[in-house]
Amino acid sequence: MYLLATDWFFIIEKLILIALVVTLSMIVAMYATYGERKVAAFIQDRIGPNRAGPFGLLQPLADGGKLFFKEEIIPLASSKFLFVLGPVLAMVTALLTSAVIPWGSPAVIAGRTVPLQVADINIGILYVFGVVSLGVYGIMIGGWASNNKFSLLAAIRGASQMISYELAMGLSLIAVLMLTGSLQMSTIVQNQLDNGWNIIYQPLGFLIFFICALAECNRTPFDLPEAESELNFGYHQEYSSMKLGFYLFAEYINMFISGVIMSTLYFGGYDIPFVNEASWGISQNLLAFISFVVLLCKAFFFVFVFMWIRWTVPRFRFDQLMHLGWKRLVPLALVNMLITALVVLLLNK
């Protein structure tokens, strides 16, 4: 009886949505590696990968194939289970965040309104924040289980960096929460559709969030956990084959997802800028698709900025990184939070 009472359409709908989101993240991550190399080539006045397929478009597939067929090495002295767990955790935490993102305006399938969001939980932002704070385990476990001094150093760097920048990130998020009055991602997007994008009210908050996102993704100028010139290859030095691939892939997925989250929190989510799409009179499904593409474009823009920064800005020293995190960003985020709170309080009266 119980099984009959379950809303099977709902379950199937969510399963399909999850599969789609995961596939999308994977494909985007795959082509982000290609994009990274092309952007790097453009900035350094080179051509970049152009051998596999037209414009080198098959390069990610070739790279993936190479990683799969490489020899898998597990160091004898390390804990085998944890050594494998490290990249798995990195991948899982990278993919988990996508669950609460509203990917587009609701579609209508067979007379049912299907929201393009896997889970609209009422603690959306905190969920993102929680998963981000777990992201450090992949690096720490992998680095420790490698039983290599360089890897361990890199893991410890990564952990301290992520914990430091989480603080400023959380504080800048609180300002967004105060504007919206809700933690729900769909409410945050709806609020921006009605009142204009959050970036107008929170430019400083966005800047802090963006810097922290760079640090959480371990991208240059915060790529100290994998600083090649100091630590050989960082926390994934002992990894080979697809386990290394998982770590590299997870970084690109993180980049893409943080781009999506920045667009959702500050740039109106799936909102199509400068137009009133309700007056177009097109079908809801088409509108859902267009809004989804708009969200993707915003996210790709941020991914491009991440790459741009990587190939133009040199790496911080570790003390500079800590100085920036604790003595600049945290006080700035606090001031931003207080000013936002004051303004919200005064305007609501």
């Binding site: 704070s133 777990l134 720490m140």
Partner: peptide, 10 residues
Amino acid sequence: AGAIMVLFLF
């Protein structure tokens, strides 16, 4: 899980 245990592990 995200902060205190990371410090423990650290």
